[in-house]
Design a binder for these strands. Structure first.
Lengths: 340, 340
DNA sequence: TTGTACGCGTTATCAT
DNA sequence: ATGATAACGCGTACAA
């Protein structure tokens, strides 16, 4: 276990001052070609790489990107982490995770402290925490770079990546109608989330355009949990006539619907079509497998990473216009053409 | 956006030297009670917290803990992250994630570089990457603190936390026998994993003790994937007589079994009992819900975090004896007493 | 018990 | 194009 070479070693061995070495490291232009080459050679031989701590101390940079979230969907989190890392690690950044409770009193100060303590260069905030405008404001006030992932453009383009849930549910509506369904029920989510509203309006507005209004008793507000899905499904499935389709705000609740239908002896998709949202891990494992909506999470996270790096490095944000991604329908077994 | 207070500010405002402040920060004993109190007050008022970069540079510490893994189970990863954070964040550490490919050529150098680049204080390695003894050796050679999570005690107690999969599957065997089953089939996993061997032997040995040997054709080696589960289930379920039970090495494959049973019109648990391992997200969502084994992942990860911090801070490892946790059976709908 | 002075590895400000 | 030298914020011999 040898000691890590420092910039001084490189300077000494190549017979220049460390300032010049520093220039080479950071790709400054004003270095003689011969000198640069000589130094680079020494760097390679020594396997030298600048110490992030020292670098950070001097330049007040940490090469750390923070991920702030309060989201129970492990699959989503995992995909985001991989997506972010796929772009930020090759640019020399590491990812520091920070799960938190966005409804707790100290949510904001907790996040700010997290960033300050470790001099995090910038943070990516996931929904639903990303929907908290107070957090965004606090980050701004503290001069902290951030990018939010959300379902609505609630911030500047350089600070946000949005998933067009509305368009996806609009597609869902068209798909269900194309199957011949005329009586569609909805298990919505907590309506204080932007995403819930987007999804709900995405489907109802499109249905309306197609001349189908969903009556109020066919729209129930669930809590996005499996148990809540069960509860809402019970309410919906004892209505007469029974709806032909239930579209849930997420796969968890859709799984609850499947459970209740099974209990009540209702055949899915024979007598009832069911759809979810998320393409969660079990969406393809349940029986029948679930028709759902898949967000390109990895790509979205990668885009967010690009944006945060651009912000940190103050680069001319190449593709600031590129901030919106569209989820797409995954059609599986739980939905079917109406037969009668 | 005010500038962050430094140790000098604290020193100035409390009228002492920064050396003394440093003592207070680091909990040294040799500081007058009155002085300590005065300084602490200033610290609180200023909301001062020491800069990790500077601290690290001086003490060659980063207050960063790395998490190395090559594991596709997002739920497991998420739980580990939360478990680790629950203990390490209150001790002032942050968690840096490092997914990797443990079968790639540069796996080891990749991990070493990860640690060196950011001066990571120590790493926690998850299975199956944790089973690579070459990595452990490399970490040792580089003087890097590490803790492995595994299913077998393949390292010193201070460097490992093990989940007693063998005992858990032993329980499973006893449980199934208590249900009256006499013909048990097994879908094992890739046998180059320690965990696979532990689980397989856990069940077969206990069955043997109970006077039941599992014939070779009733043990199939799967690949831990859903698709593989389907394949193995097909092989097993066309055998005559058909086994009464299929125990899979994980929930993914158990879900595959459920799928095939459904296709073949075999009622679970009426005609066939099925069990998995992991208590994966969908284990409680599939129909019928899955009898499985739950590892106390969060607790295990917390224990690993305690160990790595102890290693880093070179503390007398308080509870070095505490390194083994036992998973427990979760009994759900997919297993039932034999009726005939 | 408390303080002085220096070092950690890098970047940045000035010169030259 | 290159180099001395001062920060950056904190820890720690060593001294008092």
């Amino acid at each position: 276990m040898e000691k890590k070479p420092t910039i001084n070693d490189v300077a000494r061995l190549s017979g220049v001052s460390k300032r010049t070495v520093s220039r080479v490291i950071n790709g400054a232009t004003n270095v003689g070609a011969a000198t640069r080459e000589r130094i680079q050679k020494v760097i390679d031989e020594l396997g030298f790489s600048p110490d992030k701590q020292a670098r950070g101390l001097a330049a007040s940079r940490s090469y750390l990107i923070g991920l702030i979230y309060d989201n129970p969907d492990a699959l989503y989190i995992d995909q985001v982490q991989r997506g972010v890392l796929s772009v930020c690690s090759e640019k020399g950044y590491e990812l520091v995770v920070h799960p938190c409770h966005y409804r707790s009193d100290d949510f904001i100060s907790n996040c700010i402290n997290f960033v300050r303590r470790s001099n995090i260069d910038g943070v990516i905030v996931l929904p639903p925490a990303s929907e908290a405008n107070e957090l965004a404001k606090a980050l701004q006030n503290h001069g902290i770079n951030y990018v939010r992932m959300a379902s609505v453009k609630i911030d500047e383009q350089e600070n946000i990546v949005v998933s067009d849930d509305r368009a996806a549910l609009s597609d869902m509506a068209r798909y269900l109608v194309s199957l011949g369904h005329k009586d569609i029920a909805i298990i919505s989510g907590p309506k204080h989330y932007y995403s819930t509203v987007e999804r709900l309006e995405g489907i109802t507005h499109t249905l309306a355009e197609l001349g189908m209004t969903v009556p109020p008793e066919r729209i129930i507000e669930g809590k996005n949990s499996y148990e809540s899905g069960i509860e809402c499904a019970r309410t919906l499935l004892i209505q007469t006539p029974r709806p032909q389709v239930i579209v849930a705000n997420n796969d968890e609740m859709a799984a609850g619907v499947l459970k209740v239908a099974h209990e009540m002896g209702i055949d899915v998709p024979g007598e009832l079509s069911v759809a979810g949202f998320d393409d969660n891990l079990f969406a393809s494992r349940v029986i029948p497998s679930l028709t759902t909506v898949q967000r390109p999470v990895v790509a979205m996270a990668g885009l967010a990473a690009k944006k945060i790096v651009a912000l940190i490095e103050n680069k001319p944000t190449e593709d600031v216009d590129d901030y919106i991604v569209k989820p797409h329908l995954i059609i599986r077994e739980s939905t079917r053409k109406v037969t009668k």
